[in-house]
């Protein structure tokens, strides 16, 4: 293993571990941004420069900020601070994750031919990606544009569509007024 891979791997895993264990949600999300940065640097190491910068822009620039806004909109102080941030059955959850990791690691170790493949030159320039996107992958590109539009409209509709009368738990009184 080279030094660069080790450093980036440590950054990624430290960010991911922090995202899982920090008590404060905001700290967790900032730690998640660190993990995203590590993954972006791994993409850069794998000669996928465009993807690395797309990861920077989309995940760190958009998804993390979106999650932070959601935290600001749903902040509940009081009882949540005294309660443990982990669910009651956290031990079984950790056990299941460890089992999944064990199975994955065993599968990776048991597969032959993974270690000796030497990487050769890759041509993932922005020009090649753009030509591929607009020739061979043009239908998926249009589909994802449609999907993003629909998702944005749907997100706005879901987040806005609660009439004020529904949030108060007094529907019976309104019915009485209407009935009399």
């Amino acid at each position: 293993m080279t030094l660069g891979f080790t450093l980036v791997g440590i950054i990624t895993l430290a960010g991911a571990i922090g995202a899982v264990v920090f008590r404060q949600i905001v700290h967790s999300v900032l730690s998640l941004a660190l993990a995203f940065t590590g993954v972006a640097m791994l993409y850069l190491q794998l000669d996928a420069q465009f993807l690395g910068f797309a990861q920077f822009l989309v995940y760190i620039g958009a998804v993390t900020i979106l999650i932070l806004f959601a935290i600001l909109l749903t902040r509940n102080t009081g009882p949540s601070l005294s309660r443990s941030p982990f669910s009651n059955g956290w031990a079984s959850g950790v056990l299941v994750s460890a089992a999944v990791f064990g199975a994955l690691a065993w599968a990776i170790r048991a597969t032959p031919g993974l270690a000796q493949n030497a990487p050769h030159e890759a041509n993932a320039s922005v020009k090649a990606i753009g030509e591929a996107l607009l020739n061979h992958y043009v239908i998926p590109l249009e589909m994802i544009a449609l999907l993003l539009t629909a998702a944005m409209v749907g997100a706005v509709v879901i987040a806005m569509n609660e009439r004020p009368s529904q949030s108060f738990p007094q529907p019976s009184r309104q019915n009485d007024v209407k009935g009399s």
Binding site: T12, V20, F101, L104
Partner: peptide, 9 residues
Amino acid sequence: AVLFSLGLT
């Protein structure tokens, strides 16, 4: 695999 397991956790 470690990253996936942490996410699952």
